[in-house]
Design a protein around this nucleic acid. Structure first.
Lengths: 129, 129
DNA sequence: CGGGATCCGGCTTGATACTG
DNA sequence: CAGTATCAAGCCGGATCCCG
């Protein structure tokens, strides 16, 4: 596949002003990737997500969920009970995206020893500085 | 697959302090993803990369390449000629990562009309604000 | 519980200039 | 060509307070 020769492609992520670049960043961003990964198992409530995605703040989780909902990858289901209950789940499109994302994540997790080995070699080669 | 039940997994990206999270960010980050995508076609020189990845600054490209090289995903081949010539290419591990990344990118590019449609619906539903 | 609004410090980013 | 150094700006992200 030749990436330089796709004249028919409407949304080329390599183009500066293309909206696909923005969506890619929502999906692969620091919290977007982990949020999608967490929701791939099934629907979760706000604080369940917060616990699953270690280190995320309320603010960033909220922000991330809004972006993903706006892009049509996540569905928000609010029940007007008291206390309120809100469930987040992937849309069909979100599931397809999450599947490809998890393929990448799981591959990386399985090869981390190679990555860590490369890091050590790189660091010792370039001396302690 | 149940992500909550992987007790044997050494590098769980959902864990806060896990090095896999850092590597995932190098790979999926704003410039990391595009750099790996560009190199998936074949080796490129510094300024070729800079032109291919629209909008990246010299500094960020340099920084991105260092991180990817350190993680063992990119190989740097410098020839001590004058003027200097440096080629960057993916390692075998880098190719596997880039393949999975491109699967995600191409999928998103092909579904951008759905995403854009969802955005419009979201925006008009929530009034002009 | 499920968020929104605000403040604020610091890391990241992007120009610009400089070097080999 | 292939970068590094420097610096100002701004956006990200955390903390906090608030509300329904």
């Amino acid at each position: 596949m030749d990436l330089t020769d796709r004249p028919d492609l409407a949304y080329d992520v390599f183009a500066k002003a293309c909206p696909s670049r923005g969506t890619l960043e929502h999906v692969t961003g620091r919290w977007g990737a982990l949020t999608l990964g967490a929701l791939a198992e099934g629907s979760l409530r706000f604080n369940e997500l917060r616990r699953r995605v270690e280190g995320v703040s309320e603010k960033m989780l909220s922000q991330t969920l809004h972006a993903l909902e706006r892009d049509g990858l996540v569905h928000r289901e609010a029940q007007p009970t008291n206390p309120p209950r809100v469930d987040y789940e992937l849309t069909p499109l979100g599931h397809e995206v999450a599947g490809r994302l998890l393929a990448l994540i799981h591959f990386l997790e399985g090869r981390m020893d190679e990555v860590l080995g490369a890091r050590e070699r790189y660091d010792t080669a370039r001396g302690g500085r």
